[in-house]
Amino acid sequence: MLKNLRLSLVLLLICGVAYPLAMTGISQVIMPAKADGSMIKDEDGNDVGSELIGQMFTDPSYFSGRVSSIEYNGAGSGSGNYAPSNEDMIERTKEDMEAFLKNNPDVNKEDIPADLLTNSGSGLDPHISPMAAEIQVPRVASERGLSEEELEKLIEKHTEGRQFGVFGEPRVNVLKLNMALDQF
């Protein structure tokens, strides 16, 4: 038993202490911004958020992100874990759809992209699909008194393609897009 305990403690020191601390040290030296969570700061140096973590946008003059049952509170993470057959989810989607159509009267119901009305897995998804951004253009344009062409250009500028041209999906970072809106 004693040698098992000794071996366990040696492995604990190597794997549980030395390894994570060494990883922290190396990461903090060569990639400090990423290692600290890719935080975005404003001109005064205050933290506005992280470019990887989505934010809650309720003001109609901003592009809105995906549904989040935790309202983008990054102290935790999670979703409603609704089964595809769950009545509460159907009800939530119906309500969100009505609200969206009210705020965006030019939009046909069938044209709303599904990612805009579904809860992301993490509740912190920073992205929406390019289509989900474009469908909000008329609303944001009229709220801000900007032309639709200008906004479409802005979306295009903030659209990330598939990584290495193959992996994942094209997407728009909502926080970065909205920060760019405020710079206009």
């Binding site: 990883m23 922290t24 990461s27 903090q28 990423k34 935080m39 946008f57 309720t58």
Partner: peptide
């Protein structure tokens, strides 16, 4: 880490969002 996964011993951070709310971010 190069892709953006944090590696820090710093605690949860509080940010002030674009809309002015407080957002806690665990890391």
């Amino acid at each position: 880490v190069g892709q953006g996964v944090p590696q820090t011993m710093e605690p949860t951070i509080t940010a002030t969002t674009v809309e002015g709310a407080e957002q806690q971010i665990a890391r």
